[in-house]
């Protein structure tokens, strides 16, 4: 589910995570192929509930109340709250990645793609902060499997950023840890804002995010120029 949304640029990292996520789900594979509207409503309700009330405070009941569905609809699709959240997390991550991929699609250069992709991601958080919080903050409370999904998504983002090495211009060659550090730092700023309940102003972070991402590959001058360009 949702994996089809991943961008072409991230295709490299997809194979492994697909296999693992298929194993992790306790629901029968037959049901997974059906992208039923009820199932999607439950998943969205789960993310919103976690995004507004936190993971521990969210129960199957909370999700049903939000969606107006019966218990049966929930248990037809999911074994329990944890399994439902895991699927919801995957949906949430896939949507964030899809938004980024759409934002990047019309651009040619690495920097253009990064600006478009990051910008679209931040717009998505501005538009649906509760869903974003349900994914980015909620994942920390949902156990080891959820944290694995988080790590995989961050790896995909780092792989995309590291495409800068093959870019036009004269990229410097930062150590291999650089893209991971960039993703971790940007993630920390977003997580910190979401966890204090911020619901807006994410787009305004784009200039500094561009600075941090461009700096190790293209140097301070290019990074400053990029920061200025993104402010417009």
């Amino acid at each position: 589910m949702g994996k089809q949304a991943a961008s072409k640029a991230q295709a490299g990292a997809e194979g492994a995570s697909r296999t693992r996520s298929a194993e992790a789900r306790p629901v029968s594979p037959k049901l997974e192929l059906v992208d039923s509207p009820k199932r999607t409503r439950i998943l969205e309700g789960m993310l919103e509930a976690v995004g507004t009330g936190g993971y521990e405070a969210t129960s199957v009941r909370t999700v049903l109340d939000r969606t107006g569905l019966y218990r049966q609809a929930f248990y037809d699709n999911f074994a329990d709250k944890d399994a439902c959240y895991l699927a919801a997390l995957e949906l949430g991550i896939a949507r964030l990645e899809a938004a980024a991929a759409r934002g990047a699609a019309s651009e040619e250069s690495w920097r253009g793609k990064l600006r478009g992709g990051l910008g679209a991601l931040l717009d998505h958080l501005d538009a649906e902060p509760d869903l974003g919080r349900g994914v980015i903050v909620g994942v920390h409370s949902a156990g080891a499997k959820a944290l694995e999904r988080r790590a995989e998504a961050m790896k995909r983002a780092a792989d995309f950023i590291d495409l800068a090495r093959q870019g036009a211009g004269e990229p410097e060659t930062p150590p291999s840890i650089a893209p991971e550090g960039i993703v971790a730092g940007i993630h920390a700023i977003v997580h910190s804002r979401l966890s204090t309940g911020a619901s807006g102003g994410f787009r305004g972070l784009l200039p500094e995010f561009m600075y941090f991402a461009v700096l190790p590959y293209f140097g301070a001058e290019a990074a400053s120029a990029e920061m200025q360009a993104a402010r417009i």
Partner: peptide, 27 residues
């Protein structure tokens, strides 16, 4: 030597990035 020219969130980016890398190892 860059003073205020650096982005406002630079310290948070730096510490957050390091914390996240430690988080991954410990996890």
């Amino acid at each position: 030597g860059q003073g205020e020219e650096l982005p406002a969130d630079t310290a948070r980016f730096a510490v957050g990035g390091a914390a996240s890398m430690i988080f991954d190892e410990v996890r």
